[in-house]
Design a protein around this nucleic acid. Structure first.
Lengths: 194, 194
DNA sequence: CAAAACCGAACTAACGATCGTTAGGTTGTA
DNA sequence: TACAACCTAACGATCGTTAGTTCGGTTTTG
């Protein structure tokens, strides 16, 4: 009977679209259908609410990423990696969770900058590591140029962020255009020519 | 003797670091060394102040970009394009103008979203066009793969945003790592193999 | 088994602080 | 004398937060 999950969901939505300072507890409470002080039955402060939502989101995304990358390690890695970008573009358009996470990784509330980064850095580090591990599997690494898995992984993350950047400030369709353009470039750049 | 330029400079700094909602007129006035209502001698509202600063920044950056791209069209284009990314990384670290512009292109104040985008879209469109024009010059286009200037330009913008993304949420040094990794990939991907 | 104590989730009322903004006065300069 | 640039004082609205209450459902107890 508790509205706690509803509060978290609405907070996520508003934080994603208005930012931390732009989303007020009053508007969050209104959208949930409760009174503003009722939020304090579940969270010690606005910052506490934010951090709870942020941690939850980080946890879910980490799980999703891991699952996607390890789903079928035998497939050509280009396919897996390209589909991951497409999936993130879809998610960014349809669910607020991805928008929230991206926004707060780029520009966390300045008072919480250090706390947020302490959560985000291991997240990114593990993502990079998981990616390198995938590319280092013999099936894949023997198709890579001698520069190796590390370079291919780092370059991929750059491509990913570049495409998502366009998804953020314009539309999914224009981001898809970018992916079409850069993907063959990326593949030619990291694979051994046949 | 007017403090108008000082107001704009300080507003730029605070908007860049705290966001539109996070930066209050009171703190801006404090940093300038005047009283809060004095701001209204020069700007009709907080939104007006923001838009003035934003337009000025857009104008300056547009001029800088154009100058950089057209500085020496005979040089190998890879050199010009790579240096542009390095320059933007430097700017992002040293001057608030670049941080401000990036932040507000990604996440404009939600009440001003449409107005901001009406300014930003032509800016991006012209940047893309200028880039394509550069790459279509025979000196450069004859070194490009048959996919052509359009693909190379779009891929470049993706690389640029991907590297800048890392500069935003971590440091210049880590962004430089990304550039090191992706630049040879990009060049192999767009240039004809010798 | 019924009464009592407890607890969590919501509420109302209100706090002080700060927000953006307006009105109106002072002062120095053209 | 007129105007621009600043000032003080204050506005209503909203911010995040606290105090204290009510109410329904568990758990503990006589």
């Amino acid at each position: 009977m508790t509205r706690k999950p509803a509060i978290e969901d609405v907070a996520l939505q508003l934080f994603a679209s208005e930012g931390f300072e732009g989303a007020s507890l009053g508007r969050i409470a209104d959208a949930v259908g409760i009174r503003k002080p009722s939020i304090y039955a579940h969270f010690r402060s606005k910052e506490d609410l934010f951090l709870c939502v942020f941690k939850r989101t980080l946890r879910r995304k980490q799980y999703m990423l891991l699952r996607h990358i390890l789903q079928d390690t035998a497939r050509p890695f280009e396919q897996t990696l390209r589909e991951l970008i497409e999936r993130l573009m879809d998610d960014h358009e349809s669910d607020a969770e991805t928008r929230f996470l991206l926004r707060m990784c780029y520009f966390p509330p300045s008072a919480l900058h250090d706390q947020v980064m302490a959560l985000v850095n291991p997240f990114f580090a593990q993502a990079e590591l998981g990616l390198i591990r995938l590319l280092e599997q013999p099936v894949h690494s023997e198709r890579l140029r001698p520069e190796g898995a590390q370079e291919a992984a780092l370059a991929y993350l750059t491509v990913l962020d570049g495409v998502m950047a366009e998804a953020i400030y314009t539309t999914r369709a224009k981001a898809a255009r970018r992916l079409e353009a850069i993907w063959p470039v990326y593949c030619r750049g990291v694979l051994i020519a046949e």
